[in-house]
């Protein structure tokens, strides 16, 4: 136990050192660093969505709206209140907290509305947020906000990603995580074994919203502008795709999903629209062969890898034996 903690700390420090090195010595092209930052930010985004859509098993489309609230609030905070770079964490926190508040509002309908009906409500929520932002001149109306101070850099992204992974991991392994999964399996049974469903859903939605909000804040401070159109249908679809591609109910899955999709979308710009065609086909193929996503309800672990190898070896051995029998 202690040994592992030390190992994790060393790993963290090495990562941090690597980020500093990359930033200061120009080891990697700036465009590549940008992609790495995108991947990191979307990992946080997908982790957040996965809490509700994966672990809690609710088909929610509220993430675009929640991301918008987080992004806008943090940006406004950086522009008007926390104006120096070292106050960036405060802006992030403000954005995250604002998202938690709207996340709680979204949790309320989930108490008695289910399934696709809830999907429509959450969709409506996202589109309402977008529309309100378009109409509020205070936040720039359809033009959005600019210039937002460019505070996001590789180190901040790295820190936030590590924090998000650690927190989400702790969260899903705690009683809250167990409650979420119990509700996903059978809501009535979980109520009857003393799970407070309303409370569990509220907590899940707010923690989810916190991370989605943080990711929104990071992206705004990376691009140094934001506008309502970034939070429309395509943001909703993007989030869904990454969650269900990588794997529902899995932290590894969230990371893989964000990684694959962002690399596809960001680094294959040269092939233009064809990346979306390829992306669409990849989605179909993955769903056919892994309906729960690449890492659906599983985590990458050393024991898991060993098991997988053992299974492959078994199958090979059996195949060989089968062939011998056949001859």
């Amino acid at each position: 136990m202690k040994k592992r903690k030390g190992f994790h700390l060393i790993l963290f420090a090495v990562g941090l050192a690597l980020c500093c090195a990359v930033m200061n010595f120009g080891l990697i092209q700036t465009s590549k660093i940008l992609i790495i930052q995108y991947v990191g930010i979307y990992i946080i985004f997908v982790l957040g969505i996965n809490l509700v859509n994966g672990y809690l098993g609710i088909f929610s489309l509220a993430h675009a709206g929640i991301m918008a609230v987080g992004g806008y609030t943090a940006s406004l905070a950086s522009m008007h209140i926390f104006t120096s770079p070292w106050m960036f964490p405060l802006s992030l926190l403000t954005g995250g907290m604002a998202s938690v508040l709207v996340g709680l509002c979204v949790a309320v309908p989930s108490f008695n509305v289910r399934g696709d009906y809830l999907a429509i409500i959450t969709l409506g929520f996202s589109l309402i947020v977008k529309s309100i932002l378009q109409n509020l001149e205070v936040v720039g109306g359809p033009r959005g906000l600019r210039p937002i101070p460019k505070y996001t850099n590789l180190i901040w992204v790295y820190l936030c990603v590590v924090l998000a992974i650690v927190m989400v991991n702790r969260f899903v392994k705690s009683k809250y995580g167990r409650n979420m999964m119990a509700i996903r399996e059978d809501q009535i049974a979980s109520e009857l074994v003393s799970v407070d469903v309303r409370n569990a859903k509220s907590v899940a939605f707010s923690v989810s919203a916190f991370f989605i909000g943080i990711s929104g804040a990071l992206i705004c401070h990376l691009l140094s502008y934001t506008n309502p159109n970034s939070y429309g249908y395509s943001a909703i679809i993007d989030g869904l795709v990454m969650v269900y591609l990588g794997g529902v109910g899995s932290i590894t899955g969230s990371i893989i999903g964000a990684l694959i999709w962002q690399i596809l979308v960001q680094s294959l710009r040269t092939i233009g629209t064809w990346r979306w065609i390829i992306g669409g086909c990849i989605l179909v193929v993955i769903m056919i062969f892994q309906p729960n996503g690449i890492f659906g309800n599983r985590e990458l672990s050393i024991a898991g890898i060993k098991r997988a190898f053992a299974a492959i070896r078994n199958r090979l051995a059996k195949g060989a034996a089968g062939k011998k029998d056949g001859q």
Binding site: F59, I237, L240, V241, Y244, L245, W276, I277, G279, G280, C281, I282, L283, V284, M287, I288
Partner: peptide, 11 residues
């Protein structure tokens, strides 16, 4: 299936 259909739509 929803995600698969999203993929088809995108393509």
């Amino acid at each position: 299936v929803v995600v698969s259909s999203v993929g088809v739509g995108m393509a």
